[in-house]
Design a protein around this nucleic acid. Sequence first.
DNA 1: TTGAAAGCGCTAACAA
DNA 2: TTGTTAGCGCTTTCAA
Lengths: 340, 340
Amino acid sequence: MKKPTTLKDIARETGVHVSTVSRALDMNGRSSLTEDVIQRVRDTALRMGYRPNRLASALRTSRTMTVGILIPDITNTVFPPIVRGMESVLEPLGYAAIIVNTDNLPEREHRLVEVLRERGVDGIIHAAALRDDPYIVEVAAQGTPVVTVNRSIEGSDIPGVVNDEAQGIRMMMQHLYDMGHRRIAHISGPESFSTGQARLRGFHDMAQELHLEIPPQAIVQSDQFNEAEGRRCTEILLARGWQFTAILCANDRLALGAIATLRAHGLRCPEDISITGFNDMPLLDLIPPGLTTIRIQQFLVGQVAARLLIQSITDPGAVPIETVLPVELIRRGSVAGARA
Amino acid sequence: MKKPTTLKDIARETGVHVSTVSRALDMNGRSSLTEDVIQRVRDTALRMGYRPNRLASALRTSRTMTVGILIPDITNTVFPPIVRGMESVLEPLGYAAIIVNTDNLPEREHRLVEVLRERGVDGIIHAAALRDDPYIVEVAAQGTPVVTVNRSIEGSDIPGVVNDEAQGIRMMMQHLYDMGHRRIAHISGPESFSTGQARLRGFHDMAQELHLEIPPQAIVQSDQFNEAEGRRCTEILLARGWQFTAILCANDRLALGAIATLRAHGLRCPEDISITGFNDMPLLDLIPPGLTTIRIQQFLVGQVAARLLIQSITDPGAVPIETVLPVELIRRGSVAGARA
DNA sequence: TTGAAAGCGCTAACAA
DNA sequence: TTGTTAGCGCTTTCAA
């Protein structure tokens, strides 16, 4: 239970004033101190096992060297690589991260942001932003640096990193088209997320470009990005009776649900119906028939977001509002040529 | 950029002393204050959007209401559910969590623990403990409450939650035996983790009980719990030429690697060789041929660990050293009857 | 180049 | 029941 060494202890030990110790231990700002004093102080600090008390220093400087990360659900396998990407830039810079799960619930998000603010985080990386998220906009307006990842907030000037949704959908549609598909259904993402929205728009735009007819029955909107919703939406699609040869799903988990439901109806993927996803989440390659999907650069997206946040903290102003990262089409087994 | 409301602001506004404000806002300890004052203070606090500064309060009380969580790698899908389990008990109690990834590297673990201590965490949940982990033992000895999850530290009195490894291996061996397997190989876990050790011992114990002969060639030790090691170890097993009908792998990822290597050698699972795993990680059920495995209660293990930590913080002494959670055998497609 | 002193926001004796 | 006071450990302005 021994109590930690403080600056005062080191001061007593070396016979200088605590402010001198503080200066000697300050790494960046050149301190105008004698080399000799600096050495003596640092040596004794090391010897006594000094560990700076960031709470105290934060109270003085209002810099905690801690940031908050808002995730919808860390259990969703797309997010861990993103988090590691963030950590890979934050940790070397001396930042620690408080990670919280919002479950996409606005009032839970609200509460958790309070938790972060009470702890004086220097900034917030928001991977769970809602398209309409007035609360976090307010937080940013009050001076807490905020950046969004994956999703963006509509009509706000909060910097964000996103994947090239439009291009991803475009490549996928082109691929399906090239494989002979003309009647393509779409299970779209929740309309409360910018990703769901962007992918839906991409779908319409590309359909028009390819001169595909997309009747209203071709599209079902999901309420969440998960397997259960994928199943529910596929049931609806099937019940509508419109004859489609492929379903372009707004993400991988919806696609997994779609495949399961198809199978339950005696339909095979890809022989009867082709299915596509989005994200290329981990382990996907091992799940038959191998989902054809759009790969986003999960680790990189995290890195870029973290860099943006650091920049917002140290040098606001010069931070780009939107950063778009390229995506890649991954062909696997879930797309086949359209039946005649 | 408006600066946050402090107790002093509320004091000025209500015309009482800041210590009175502090008392009025203190939720638990009944404060011997007039109902009227309490109401007035709380009302204005609410009106002014007061948010307690935990840094300042922590500096005074040395309670940050923040805990540290050490994970080997959040990208490993067994861990996110465990983390959610922890969060499910921590968050309602007002605790936030700083989560860090050790990658099983001792010196990285060391550095990250420093990061946590500098931020004054009230305790540490260690899901990345090494069998021999003198540093964290020292940290605990110096007064920081520590509990381990999944893995335990040898010869220490640090409280820990583990799964019933012995019973899991026992059930699995019995299952293989019942399916006619008599020549069972084992890809064991890293010897630096208590889990690897415990499962290996369980393997030997149960083999003896079943009167199975286990020649030295039957066992290969992995260096890490991942697919690459599973492949490497399987190659070794195959090269040795000992005829086995099943491989009991120390965890799911080793098993996934084993299946891949078998396939590369033209061997089918389960027709030629049966394979088993441990953990029942998410998505495993979707990967063919469906790995027969031992399910650990991921969410629960996290919950229990968090409860233990809170107890260690608030009421040390009465904390059980070891808590063992039951496991379950999950039969899927990777085990078939042994070939004659 | 170094020391003195004040204060970040809060809590907890101790007094009144 | 409420106010006064001191101080948690650190940084930073001002003096010397």
